[in-house]
Every structure is written in structure tokens, then in C-alpha cells.
């Protein structure tokens, strides 16, 4: 498994993809041609998937390119990722140990990223038989982005959900009412700094049952889960 990369287009495809994937490289070429500098990064896993990162200003244009030029007419989903490491530690941390100093370094995933919040969406092309994931960075001080409603009608509820879960504003949406939670609910649950109060009141007790960890990579091979 390759490590996460934020390299630009050419380096990514050359350094990390010994095998070639023409169909997906064609998608990257289409976006490079249409968006130029607004295409900030891309990542191809040959035979599997392609990730593209575009600039915030070009988000809607990228959507239209995705739909019309790349032929991905079937909308799949739109959501966001909060790349901040959880300040409440990981689930496997023991509740009795002292909580480690929370990690604040933001490491983003495929196709790179500079900021904490990233909106990502995916669409599918029936005739190419592949899907494309688009990502876009949002600056922390202005969590807003153009709506994709003119691109895919189905994005309506997805943007409402993302607004509710992350507090991201979709400019031009017009009806960002809460979709899941009751009106009185405060906070944005899918942000990493949203605490699960039940876990803080009563920490997960399952940690006592977990066997000691095998030594990093070396011990992994001689252990078998099946009989």
C-alpha cells in the first residue's frame, strides 16, 4: 500500500502507478484540459479508482465538466471529511490510562489537501464503467462553497446533510434546513471535535478484552486468525 501523497498530476501517476490505466488517465487529461491550474492534484489507483482535487472557485465548473465531458451523469454522493485528528483520542485507547496529548497535525488523503475540511463528491459513468471522486478544500475561516444543484438535482439532500453534519454552507442552495436532527440540536456531529457524551461519561469497557498487540509488522505474519 502506497503512502498518502499530495504530489501533482504527473508525479503521482508516474511514481505510484507502475501499471497504467488509460480510461482513468483520460479523465485526468480531460480535467487538465478544461480546468488548467484549477486542478490541484490527482491520484490514480490503476484499475480501481481516480481522485481529483480542484480549487474552490472551480467547484461548479468541475461538476459540469464531470457531468458533460467525463460523462459521469449518475450522481452518487456528496459529503465532507474533517481531517483534524480526534481530540478525544482513539477508540482503542484505554479509559484508565492518561489521555495522550491530542495530535493536531492534519494529514490529508489521496490527491492532497491543505485545510481541515474537504468536501468530496462522486459520480459514475455508465458507458466508461468507472466512477470519479472530486475533492475540494475549504478554508477554515470561510466554510462555504457553491452549490451543485444546477449540476445534479439529486445533490439537494446531500448538501443539506453535509450542512447539518459539518456546518458547511452551500451558497445558492436556499433550503439548508436540518434533515436528520431535531431543530433544537446544537453542534455539528461529524466534526471531529464534537464529543460523544455517552463515551465521556462512561468510557468503552471493551478495552480490557483486547489481547496485547503483536509487534508491529514482524509479528503479523505468524499469527493466523483462521484455524
Amino acid at each position: 500500500m502506497s503512502h498518502l501523497s499530495s504530489a501533482d498530476v504527473d508525479e503521482t501517476t508516474e511514481a505510484e502507478a507502475p501499471a497504467t490505466d488509460e480510461a482513468r488517465e483520460e479523465i485526468v487529461a480531460i480535467f487538465t484540459e478544461e480546468l488548467g491550474d484549477a486542478l490541484l492534484g490527482s491520484h490514480i489507483r490503476p484499475g480501481d479508482d481516480v481522485w481529483l482535487r480542484v480549487s474552490r472557485d472551480a467547484w461548479r465548473t468541475a461538476g459540469i465538466v464531470l457531468r458533460d465531458r467525463a460523462g459521469c451523469r449518475a450522481f452518487e454522493f456528496l459529503s465532507a471529511i474533517d481531517w483534524l485528528p480526534s481530540p478525544f483520542g482513539k477508540s482503542e485507547d484505554s479509559p484508565t490510562d492518561e489521555r495522550p496529548e491530542p495530535d493536531t497535525e492534519i494529514v490529508t488523503g489521496y490527491a492532497g489537501g491543505d485545510t481541515r475540511f474537504q468536501v468530496f463528491a462522486r459520480a459514475l459513468s455508465y458507458h466508461r464503467k468507472l466512477g470519479v471522486t472530486l475533492k475540494v478544500d475549504l478554508p477554515d475561516d470561510d466554510l462555504s462553497i457553491e452549490t451543485w444543484l444546477p449540476v445534479f438535482a439529486g445533490v439537494n439532500w446531500h448538501e443539506r446533510e453535509t450542512h447539518e453534519m459539518f456546518g458547511i454552507d452551500f451558497v445558492g442552495h436556499g433550503h439548508l434546513a436540518p434533515i436528520y436532527l431535531p431543530g433544537e440540536f446544537e453542534g455539528h456531529p461529524l466534526r471531529k471535535d464534537f464529543p460523544l457524551l455517552a463515551r465521556i461519561v462512561k468510557p468503552w469497557p471493551g478495552i480490557v478484552d483486547v489481547e496485547p498487540m503483536p509487534e508491529a509488522e514482524g509479528g503479523a505474519d505468524d499469527e493466523e486468525a483462521s484455524e
Binding site: 500500500m1 502506497s2 503512502h3 498518502l4 479508482d49 481522485w51 452518487e76 488523503g109 489521496y110 462522486r122 466512477g131 471522486t133 483486547v210 489481547e211 498487540m213 503483536p214 509479528g219 503479523a220 505474519d221 499469527e223 493466523e224 486468525a225 483462521s226
Partner: peptide
């Protein structure tokens, strides 16, 4: 044949992103 591949007893998934539908 077998019904289980060789996997470590404690599952740690390497860094990365994956989409399966």
C-alpha cells in the same frame, strides 16, 4: 478450500482511501 485468508489477529488497516460499492 479454506474460507479464511491469512490475516493478522488484530486488524490494522493501512493508510489510504477506498470506495467499494
Amino acid at each position: 478450500g479454506p474460507i479464511m485468508a491469512k490475516v493478522p489477529r488484530i486488524i490494522k488497516v493501512p493508510e489510504g482511501e477506498a470506495w467499494v460499492a
